[in-house]
Write a protein that binds this DNA or RNA. Structure first.
Lengths: 217, 217
DNA sequence: GTAACGACGTTACGTGATTCACAACAGTAT
DNA sequence: ATACTGTTGTGAATCACGTAACGTCGTTAC
């Protein structure tokens, strides 16, 4: 809904660009200086057309003779995907999954910075987990406003997900990574990315079934 | 091709059916006996048309006067999604994320049964974590064949993901839930569902950016 | 009894995303 | 020089998917 350069790209494209960037970093480490759309596509599990089309949407241009410059293209995707400044992020719910996500941030590459974890458990509040200070849920609105937080990650129990969402969205958060199995109701203009493990399990279960008596496609 | 009900549905439909089922269970607990497509759609975050169409694809039929029977529809989705028998699942990599997934299985509803966790760390092998025995990576092919495992969950370091995949796919696994940031190369007929946290983060970061000077709305 | 309403099942349509296909062009070999 | 190869960028075509629309029918109101 918001107009600025913010929402130029749709989520699928953003996702693939992020994937390309990761592959490009990997290629750079391997010493590759140039890459063709076919090679990038193969590593990303998409078609070469798709790669070229995606790069077209961000206006990056290669050379028919040598393909794309690994470093330059990587920087182009950074420019497109990353905020010009660091983006503070908060985590809600420091359970198993929450800790796993915090751990993930150690290898953080993007401009995201985990600035606060929040939990209702008084045991956890005040402690520093994976390098992140844990606060009480009561402090949420103040935290968000003080630190200018726009992005939150929800790894809390499903039963509290909607109320927590209402609270933080009211305080200014407008982009959520939702690990709970609840479909959050949010006002227009708030972005929600669902990472629903239950649904993912249902899918692998479904396609894992084999017809009787067959083993190996 | 083969008649078996295996691949009748596409992944999106499977995902939504799983979501509907979850909502239906919740409705049943609230004592709701009937539900209209609109209500179900609202909870699922989709349109009513979408719900009706999805139910059409599984051949379930409601009544224009009273809508869908909560319990009967729940059972219909179970019938469609669940295997007739228990499905053994294995987990590869017992790190933070792996433990979070194991934890998740405690509230298991589907026919999935976590029968083994595998890790290279000798410290973990032999221990029981969240009710699941941990085995050595060396035992993988035997484990898979003994227990008839078709489904695996990958929560191991990215650097080992492809080799582990080759190994287990060779041993008969043909449906993978991949939490690593690697795009796995698998033969035709093997289903892979990617849960890429890095990409999800890139998306929320992207849409979390705000144009300068605006705060709220 | 009849009309009006509302929801379902299904078909038809629209939209957006992906793939195709090809002109243009750099490099290479002959 | 010229022909050939292989890749890019992009308009056109295709495809998949979700949405809208509509006929049907039970229920309710009057």
């Amino acid at each position: 809904m918001n107009t600025s350069r913010n929402n130029k790209l749709n989520p699928n494209v953003v996702g693939r660009l992020s994937l390309y960037r990761r592959i490009l970093q990997s290629l750079a480490m391997e010493g590759q200086a140039k890459v063709f759309s076919h090679a990038l596509a193969k590593r990303a599990g998409v078609t070469a057309s798709q790669v070229r089309r995606d790069l077209m949407t961000i206006g990056y241009t290669g050379s028919p003779s040598s393909g794309y410059d690994v470093v330059a293209l990587g920087e182009a995707t950074n420019l497109e995907l990353d905020a010009p400044t660091r983006q503070p992020v908060m985590l809600l719910g420091v359970g198993n999954l929450g800790r796993a996500v915090l751990e993930y941030f150690h290898q953080a590459h993007a401009r995201l910075e985990m600035v606060a974890a929040v939990d209702v458990d008084p045991e956890k509040v005040g402690r520093v987990i994976s390098g992140v200070a844990t606060y009480s849920a009561a402090d949420l609105p103040d935290l968000i406003k003080e630190k200018g937080i726009d992005v939150a990650i929800l790894t809390l129990p499903a039963s509290r997900a909607q109320e927590a969402t209402d609270l933080i969205v009211g305080a200014g958060v407008h982009s959520l990574l939702n690990f709970t199995n609840v479909r959050l109701r949010v006002p227009d203009g708030v972005f929600v990315e669902n990472m629903d493990i239950g649904i993912a399990l249902a899918k692998v279960a479904y396609y894992g079934r084999r017809e009787e008596g067959r083993r190996g496609e």
